[in-house]
C-alpha cells in the first residue's frame, strides 16, 4: 500500500523525449550517485565478499562455501542467531501491544494530550548511549534503586539484571520496549484518526459494547497500520546493535551476543572480512524471508478500505 505509484498521466503527448529524460536524470543524479556508490555497490560487494577469505591487508582468496561451512561449526554464531530471535520475539509483540494501548488511550479528547504524546515519544529520540547508561545504573545489581526497592519490598535475592546470564536479555528487551513504543504509538494514533467516526456511530445505534467496537471496528480498520508496524519493527529488531553494545557489550559471556554484534566483532576486531560478510548474509536472508512471509500473509488478515 505504501509503495503504490501515482496514476500514470495518459496524456496524448506521445513518447518522452530524450531531453525530458535528461532533465529528470539531472534531478535524481546528485542523490543517486551517492546512493549507488555507498549503498548499492557495497550491497553487491557484500554478496561477493561472503565467498572470499580476506583479512583486509593480504591477498583476497576465493573461499567458495568455506565461510558458510564454518558458520555451521561456529558456536558463537549459533548462540548469536538464537539470541537475535530471542530479542526479536521478546521485543516485537509487546512493543506492538503497548504502542496500540497507548494510542487507544490517547485517541480521545483529553486535556494535556500533546503533553502525554510528547512524553511517551521522548525516549525514542533520546540517544541510546545516555539511555543505556542510566538503565544500567537504575538496574545495577548491588546498588541500583530498582534492586534496593525490591529488597525493601522483601525480595530476598533480586535478579542481577545485566550482570546475570539469564536476566541480561530480558533487561535489554525491557529497555528496548520502553524506548521504542512511543514511535509506533504515533503511527497507530495516525491510523486511529483515519477511522471514519460514522462506523462507531452506527455501532452505537446497534448497541455494541466497547469491546465489540474494538474487536469488530478498530482492530480490522487498523490492520494496514499493524502490518506496517510489524514489518518495520521486525526489521529494526533484527538490526539491534547500539543498545546491546552500550548496555552489555554482548555479555555477560555471550548472553546478549546478537548477529550484528557478532558481525561487528568478526570484522572490526578480528579482521575476518569475508567471514563477517557471510554472517551478515545470514542476517539479510533471515530478514528477507520473514519480510516475504509477512507480505504473503498480508492478504489473509489485512483489510484495506
Amino acid at each position: 500500500m505504501q509503495f503504490t505509484y501515482p496514476k500514470q498521466k495518459k496524456a496524448g503527448t506521445g513518447q518522452k523525449t530524450l531531453k525530458q529524460n535528461l532533465i529528470a536524470y539531472s534531478f535524481i543524479l546528485p542523490n543517486l550517485l551517492g546512493f549507488a556508490a555507498f549503498t548499492l555497490i557495497p550491497m553487491a560487494f557484500s554478496l561477493v565478499l561472503a565467498f572470499m577469505h580476506w583479512d583486509g591487508a593480504n591477498v583476497v582468496t576465493w573461499a567458495g562455501l568455506d565461510n558458510f561451512r564454518r558458520l555451521t561449526q561456529d558456536e558463537t554464531f549459533r548462540i548469536a542467531l538464537g539470541n537475535t530471535f530471542y530479542y526479536v520475539i521478546g521485543t516485537v509483540p509487546p512493543t506492538m501491544i503497548a504502542s496500540l494501548a497507548l494510542a487507544m488511550l490517547l485517541n480521545r479528547p483529553l486535556r494535556g494530550r500533546d503533553f502525554f504524546r510528547t512524553t511517551f515519544f521522548f525516549p525514542y529520540i533520546a540517544s541510546l548511549v545516555a539511555v543505556a547508561v542510566v538503565w544500567n545504573m537504575l538496574f545495577h545489581p548491588a546498588m541500583g534503586p530498582v534492586n534496593q526497592l525490591l529488597v525493601t519490598l522483601g525480595v530476598e535475592s533480586p535478579p542481577r539484571w545485566t550482570a546475570s546470564v539469564d536476566w541480561a536479555m530480558p533487561t535489554v528487551i525491557m529497555a528496548s520496549i520502553w524506548k521504542g513504543m512511543g514511535y509506533y504509538m504515533v503511527i497507530y494514533l495516525a491510523a486511529l484518526q483515519g477511522i471514519p467516526p460514522y462506523l462507531y456511530e452506527a455501532a452505537d445505534i446497534d448497541g455494541a459494547s466497547a469491546w465489540q467496537k474494538f474487536r469488530y471496528i478498530t482492530l480490522p480498520m487498523l490492520t494496514p497500520a499493524t502490518f506496517f508496524v510489524s514489518i518495520m519493527l521486525t526489521i529494526a529488531s533484527f538490526k539491534v546493535f547500539d543498545l546491546i553494545m552500550v548496555m552489555t557489550g554482548g555479555g555477560p559471556g555471550r548472553a546478549t551476543n546478537v548477529l550484528v554484534i557478532h558481525t561487528y566483532n568478526t570484522a572490526f576486531r578480528e579482521f575476518r572480512f569475508g567471514y563477517s560478510s557471510a554472517i551478515a548474509m545470514v542476517l539479510f536472508v533471515v530478514v528477507l524471508i520473514i519480510t516475504i512471509v509477512q507480505f504473503r500473509m498480508e492478504k489473509r488478515w489485512v483489510s484495506y478500505m
Binding site: F35, A37, F38, T39, L40, I41, P42, M43, F45, S46, L49, G56, I231, I235, F238, K239, F241, V260, T263, Y264, A267, F268, F273, S276, S277, A280, M281, L283, F284, V287, L288, T291
Partner: peptide, 17 residues
C-alpha cells in the same frame, strides 16, 4: 529495497570502499 535491507549487512564492504 535498500530501506528494508539492514545497513549492517553491508557495512563491511562500505568500510573497505
Amino acid at each position: 529495497a535498500s530501506i528494508a535491507i539492514p545497513w549492517q549487512s553491508y557495512m563491511v564492504p562500505q568500510f573497505i570502499i
